[in-house]
Design a binder for these strands. Structure first.
Length: 580
DNA sequence: GCCGTTTTCGGCCCGACTGTTTTCAGTCG
């Protein structure tokens, strides 16, 4: 079973346990285990036979290792079976409604036999909720709205949409005299591919205790607000019209570092950090790191000083997922993560020859403006007819135009000739080897393989990448690989053979499609498969999306040397040949 | 259920907001 599926079962058990009123600490240990499993770089299915190795994962002890083994063996645990016999699985959906926690779910179930979103809706309409203790008009109304919102959108937002919303809100907040700094925190700062809600931190003289009231009022008056969820002393929560939930905190300068640390999360990271603080005689809150003995402040203004006071190197937000980063920071062994400035080239982009918007020269100029030393023009091959894909003849013509344009650049940038070739149903390619041999970069993608029997896909991908001219395994293969369970792909076999795996930035992806997982990038790197990050730009402006790809690599803990297109051109090209 | 410079028992992160209450429970991040 895939790690993610195991994690889901453990998390589900935690939810059910919570509804049943179980021991909070036992619940927490299931949650911790779920996160540990999800973040594990190694597939647990390979570890499950060896309890000793399972137990080396922090948060997994003897009992949890046994649970995981049983999940691997038969898909559930005795505790989970018992809980599911008592509670309907649809109860778990109820937990997703705002204002609905385990206690309320249990109450609704036990007193009204309400066990699903549908039944809750019916109970609200029938006025049954008002008979329960603690259920006033406001709570019932909140649940009614919650059900409506749940039906409307239960998804997360793409990083770039969240970033855009954050920038707009920042501009508005900064108009208010005395708000001097606005910083996005939460999963946006951690660079998650999708963002569930937006955490925004604001500070400045206006956020001091005696004046914050006006700043809060200004925040709550933000025009795009669809509905206000909460307004407190220094916190405002609301939904934007897009449905994105935003939490704004207005805090005095003195506690900005502690607040930024706190609101950046992740939750797991923060819990681990607080435990460490306690051991060292401190207490950490969103206001300060303070000494337990007398409550005096040890650090609060900046993140660096807080981490330093706890004996840690500053931890980049992308690594704050509670997966060993604190231990690494204590041992001074955090990786020096790749930076955008390390990149020397973007090697996947389209032009007007197929479905791009710009010419070769325009793409090259845009790349020069972004400081690149080389690019590759990689239009589609003929199998993607709807994009006007290139056949052998047009591909040769395109190579000639690229070479010509490259010469005209007079060394300002190198333009490589490339192609995004399709892996056909039988594992063959839709351009001839004679043409592929003249390309500098051949990205093999799997558009048409989706139609094929799933159990044969591994063999077909392997056959395709055996072609000596194929240099990068590309889109949407990456996503396919990640859903290896669903598509029955042998990820390890493929990564062992592939020269390089492309990490693409999907400029037009939906949240469901954008699910490249950090662990797979690490795994690919460990298997000796090169990593290439590129944008798949169809327009010059798409080149700016590279920053999202960089965030993904950073979250996977990758360094400059792990990524091929940080290298000078000759070494980049050499890196595309497996084993060299 | 996990974990150990508090080490095999007895701990386990912290604070704010809301609604329905008059001292607090539940939810949330």
């Amino acid at each position: 079973m895939e790690n993610r599926a195991i994690a889901r079962l453990l998390g589900e058990t935690a939810d059910l346990l919570e509804i049943s009123g179980g021991d909070p600490f036992r619940i927490r240990s299931y949650r911790r285990a779920a996160e540990a499993v999800e973040n594990s770089a190694e597939p647990l299915s390979s570890l499950a036979r060896d309890p000793k190795r399972l137990q080396q994962i922090p948060g997994i002890g003897k009992g949890m290792a046994a649970n995981i083994e049983e999940i691997e063996a038969r898909g559930s645990t005795p505790l989970r079976d018992e809980l599911l016999a008592r509670y309907h699985p649809a109860l778990l959906e109820l937990l997703k409604l705002p204002g609905m926690g385990p206690k309320t779910v249990a109450l609704l179930w036990e007193s009204l036999q309400v066990g699903s979103v549908e039944q809750l809706e019916a109970a609200i309409e029938a006025g049954k909720l008002r008979t329960l203790p603690r259920f006033g008009d406001k709570l019932v109304e909140k649940l009614r709205r919650g059900v409506a919102d749940y039906r409307k959108n239960s998804g997360r937002f793409l990083l770039d949409a969240a970033e855009e919303a954050a920038e707009q809100l920042s501009r508005y907040l900064l108009q208010f005299g005395g708000i001097t700094r606005v910083t996005p925190a939460g999963s946006l700062r951690r660079g998650r591919e999708t963002v569930g809600d937006l955490d925004i931190l604001a500070t400045g003289p206006a956020c001091a205790e005696d004046t914050v009231r006006d700043a809060v009022a200004h925040t709550a008056a933000y025009p795009p607000i669809a509905d206000l969820i909460a307004k407190g002393q220094n916190k405002v929560s609301f939904h934007l019209r897009s449905g994105l939930q935003v939490d704004v905190r207005l805090l005095p300068e003195a506690s900005y570092g502690a607040a930024l640390q706190y609101f950046t999360g992740s939750k797991t990271h923060n819990i681990a950090l607080r435990q460490r603080a306690l051991k060292l005689g401190y207490s950490l809150s969103e206001y300060a790191l303070s000494r337990l003995e007398d409550g005096s402040v040890a650090a609060s203004g900046g993140e660096e000083e807080i981490y330093a006071a706890l004996g840690l190197d500053w931890i980049p937000p992308e690594l704050r997922e509670g997966s060993g980063e604190i231990e690494a920071a204590a041992a001074r062994s955090l990786p020096a993560l790749i930076e955008q400035a390390d990149l020397r080239g973007d090697v996947h982009m389209h032009t007007r020859a197929t479905d791009g918007r710009n010419t070769i020269a325009e793409m090259a100029e845009a790349a020069i403006a972004r400081g690149y030393e080389y690019i590759a023009i990689t239009d589609h091959s003929k199998n993607l007819a709807m994009t006007n894909g290139l056949d052998d003849r047009r591909a040769l013509e395109q190579i000639r135009r690229i070479r010509e344009c490259d010469a005209e650049m007079e060394g300002r940038i190198r333009i490589l000739a490339g192609i995004e070739v399709d892996i056909l149903g039988d594992g063959g390619l839709d351009l001839s080897n004679e043409v592929l041999a003249q390309m500098d970069v051949v990205i093999a993608s799997v558009h048409s393989l989706f139609q094929q029997p799933r159990e044969e896909m591994t063999a077909r991908i392997l056959k395709a990448i055996e072609n000596p001219f194929v240099t990068i395994l590309g889109h949407p293969t990456g996503r396919l690989l990640l859903r290896r369970e669903a598509y029955a792909l042998d990820l390890v076999a493929i990564l062992k053979r592939a020269a390089a795996l492309r990490v693409a930035v999907e400029h037009n992806a939906s949240p469901e499609r954008l699910d490249l997982r950090d662990v797979d990038l690490r795994l690919a790197s460990e298997m000796g498969c090169g990593i290439v990050v590129n944008t798949d730009a169809h327009h010059t402006s798409h080149l700016d999306k590279m920053r999202y790809g960089i965030r993904q690599l950073r979250r996977a803990g990758l360094r400059k040397q792990d990524v091929l297109n940080t290298r000078p051109l000759p070494e980049f090209l050499a890196g595309l040949r497996r084993g060299s």
